[in-house]
Nucleic acid binder design. Structure first.
Length: 445
DNA sequence: TTTCCCATAAACAATC
DNA sequence: TGATTGTTTATGGGAA
């Protein structure tokens, strides 16, 4: 077979519209959880839903998410959250302290990851620095994150390859000439389908631990990741730029960060997640797939048209209306919002410990971890003790640093929320404003 | 019950 | 030659 840089003839044979439809529908289903996981998955309480309704009308979600982002890469026990992609059932990369995952619900490493192969591949590829990986590397990545596959029958590799070949989301790219090792091609995510994959990710049902936030935790009052994913959803149809995708990936990471932070918490109320087949089509060109796909509705790409989601859908499928997200009616509100977000974010970090990579022997890719890209990988934590006084200056610098990161995070989230990029400068200004205010407070304190 | 999605298995060819 | 990679087809289970 000669070098192939595009889709297979089979893929090309389909009409673009049909392909998109197919991709969407397939992705709709990609988040399916295995029964075992589903059984342990929490169901949303009515209160959760109501809160979701209320809170979706303001920017609290962003406020809180900024807080969350502060702890982006910090587990509840100060352990690094290098990746969100561990088995969400609590399995961890062996090199990590098991205490981090000492969850009563923890299952053995034989538990199957709740991600479809498509998502696993997507995450693997997105996690790579070059956003492209050879099959072997994809294997490795999956194995590293999901020990389940270490003991699973080898058929999963076949499935991975099968997915790569059949799934329109993935594209084969030729390795650069002069390659030294390896055979086969690199695989990347087709940008055209990235939004679909992101949507699949954000639709990913999460197990119980994901959504429970202890009231007293620094995440207290934080909206469930669903709030964030709702915002993502709001933008689902837009032409998602790379930055969006990075942010979406960040959200994905955030979700797991939340998980990490709550694994030790009591069992949460169940979260009822419903899935609707609103998208029609398939990534896979199975013979069973409807040919042509002409009868498939065009995927909804208009953020204003949310009819892809049932009004009765759970909070995770609700969208934050653009107006609500953009409800900052004044600069002061923006000031207040950003300032508060930054302040809370900085303070919230107190509850989290220094991120020390206890797993330095593995994954050179950490350097390219999306978390790192987001600037949330590693934030030293200064103990709040008497000794902190001489470190005040350092602490302030740290706060400024964190502020900067928060600003970026907020910017990304605002962008995702559909708020005009012009707000970025506004946020910048607000940031300065908040910093000055904090300094004043420090002085008075 | 039907339809669709997904996982899995298998066969086969091409390439290293 | 064997292993790996990539493609394709078939099939069964689960969910809507």
């Amino acid at each position: 077979m000669g070098p192939v840089t595009g889709m297979t003839p089979d893929k090309k044979a389909e009409t673009p519209g049909a392909e998109k439809s197919a991709g969407l529908r397939h992705i709709q289903r990609m988040g399916s959880l295995p029964e075992a996981v589903d059984a342990a998955r929490p169901k949303a309480t009515a209160v959760d839903s109501e809160l979701a309704d209320d809170e979706l009308t303001n920017l609290n979600w962003l406020h809180e998410s900024t807080n969350l982002l502060t702890n982006f890469s910090l587990g509840s026990e100060g352990l690094p959250v290098v990746s969100p992609l561990y088995d969400i059932e609590g399995d961890s990369v062996p090199s990590y302290p098991s205490s981090c995952y000492s969850n009563p619900e923890k299952k053995s490493a034989t538990s199957k990851p709740p991600y479809s192969f498509s998502l696993l591949i997507y995450m693997a590829i997105e996690h790579s620095p070059s956003k492209s990986l050879p099959v072997k590397e994809i294997y490795s990545w999956i194995l590293e994150r999901f020990p389940y596959f270490a003991t699973a029958p080898t058929g999963w590799k076949n499935s991975v390859r099968h997915n790569l070949s059949l799934n329109k989301c993935f594209r084969k790219v030729e390795r650069s000439h002069g390659k030294v090792n390896g055979k086969g091609s690199l695989w990347c995510v087709d940008p055209e389908y990235k939004p679909n994959l992101i949507q699949a990710l954000k639709k990913q049902p999460f197990p119980s631990a994901f959504f429970y936030t202890p009231p007293a935790s620094p995440l207290s009052g934080s909206p469930s990741p669903h709030y964030l994913t709702s915002v993502l959803k709001q933008n689902q149809g837009r032409s998602i730029k790379d930055s969006d995708i990075d942010a979406a990936t960040a959200m994905m990471l955030l979700n797991t960060s939340i998980e990490e932070g709550i694994l030790d918490c009591k069992k949460p109320q169940p979260l009822k997640l419903s899935k609707k087949r609103n998208y029609v089509s398939t990534f896979q060109s199975h013979g069973k797939a409807s040919p042509g796909g002409s009868h498939f509705p065009v995927p909804n790409i208009d953020p204003n048209e949310d009819h892809n989601y049932s009004a009765s859908s759970v909070a995770s499928q609700r969208c934050v209306s653009p107006s609500s997200v953009s409800s900052l009616s004044s600069v002061d509100e923006v000031y207040e919002f950003v300032s508060e977000a930054s302040r809370v974010g900085s303070e919230g970090s107190e509850g989290f410990h220094s991120e020390v990579d206890t797993d330095g022997d593995d994954r050179e890719e950490d350097d390219d971890d999306p978390l790192a890209d987001s600037g949330y990988t590693s934030q030293p934590c200064l103990a709040a003790s008497d000794k902190a006084q001489p470190r005040k200056k350092a602490l302030e610098e740290l706060c400024l640093e964190i502020d900067e990161e928060l600003k970026e995070a907020a910017g990304s989230l605002l962008h995702l929320a559909g708020i005009s990029p012009c707000l970025g400068s506004l946020i910048s200004t607000a940031k300065t404003h908040s910093q000055k205010r904090r300094r004043r407070n420090d002085v008075t304190a």
